[in-house]
Design a protein around this nucleic acid. Sequence first.
DNA 1: ACAGATTTGCAACTAAGTTGCAAATCTTTT
DNA 2: AAAAGATTTGCAACTTAGTTGCAAATCTGT
Lengths: 133, 133
Amino acid sequence: MLKGAKLYCTEPRVSILQAMIKADRPLARNQMVKLLGKNHFDKVTIYRTLECFLDAGLVHKAFLQKRAWFFELAHHCSKIQCHPHFTCTKCGSTECLIGVSVPMIKGLKKGIVIYRQQTRLEGLCQKCNSVTN
Amino acid sequence: MLKGAKLYCTEPRVSILQAMIKADRPLARNQMVKLLGKNHFDKVTIYRTLECFLDAGLVHKAFLQKRAWFFELAHHCSKIQCHPHFTCTKCGSTECLIGVSVPMIKGLKKGIVIYRQQTRLEGLCQKCNSVTN
DNA sequence: ACAGATTTGCAACTAAGTTGCAAATCTTTT
DNA sequence: AAAAGATTTGCAACTTAGTTGCAAATCTGT
C-alpha cells in the first residue's frame, strides 16, 4: 500500500497503517497510541504520517470530536460523500453507517458548487438504549 | 429573552445576545469579540455565557471549524435537526441553508435512537465560484 | 438599600496540533 | 554491501481553544 502510494516505507508508517486497518473505524491520535502499545512514536510523527496518508488519499478526516480529528481509511468513501457517522451521546462510541444511503441535498442557490456532503447523527446506540432508564 | 429563560440579566449576557441577534449567523468566540468591540469580556465569561444560553435552549452549537465551536441562535432549528451549513473552502465563509429540506436518514439498525441529525456541505460559494480560474 | 445568590475576571492549566532543526532512517546507485 | 542523497523522525518550544478554582463584583427579590 505504501509503495503503491510512492511513500517511504518506514516503521511508524507501517505500524500506523496496520493499526488503522485492524481497527477499521475512525481513530483519533490518542486511540492510535493505545492500539500501538509499545510501538511508541512521537505525536508529531503520527500527525505527519496521517497527513502524508491524507495527501496520498489513503485516509480521510472523518470528523472532529472533542477538538480532535478522527481519521479513517478512505476505502468506504466516495469522493463527494463519506458514509454517515453515528455517535452515541451516552457511551461516546462512534459507528460508521456503511450501506445507508444519503441523498445529496437539492434546491441550493445557483452558483454554488458542492465538493462534499457530510452527515452526522447523534443518539443512543443499541447497547445504551437497551439499558436506558 | 433572558428573563424568559430565567437567567440573570447581566451586561455580558445582554451584549453577547445582541451581537448574536445582529449577526444572525454562527459565530465563534473570537468573532464575537470583534463584534463586541470595546465591550470587552473575558473569554471565560463568553464561554460560560454561551453555555448557559445552551442550557436554556437559546443557542445551538452549530459546528466545529478549525477546532473552534460556532454558536448560533436556536430559532431556525428543530429539536432533531438544525438546518444544514455550507462552508466555502476558498474564502472560508459559512452560510446557513435555511429552507432547504434534508430528509432524515432511514434504514438504520433496530435499537438505535436518533436524537439529532446534522448535515455539512463544503464547496465553492457563489462569489468564489464566479472568480474561479 | 440589604442579604443572599449568581456571575465575572484573573491566573493557571489541559489538550490537540504545529514548527524548526539536527539526528536517524530509507532508497537508489555504485 | 556500502556510500550518497533524499526523506523522515523525535525533541523542544510554541499556538490556540477551551476549562477550573476562587475571590471580588454584580444581580435579584425583599
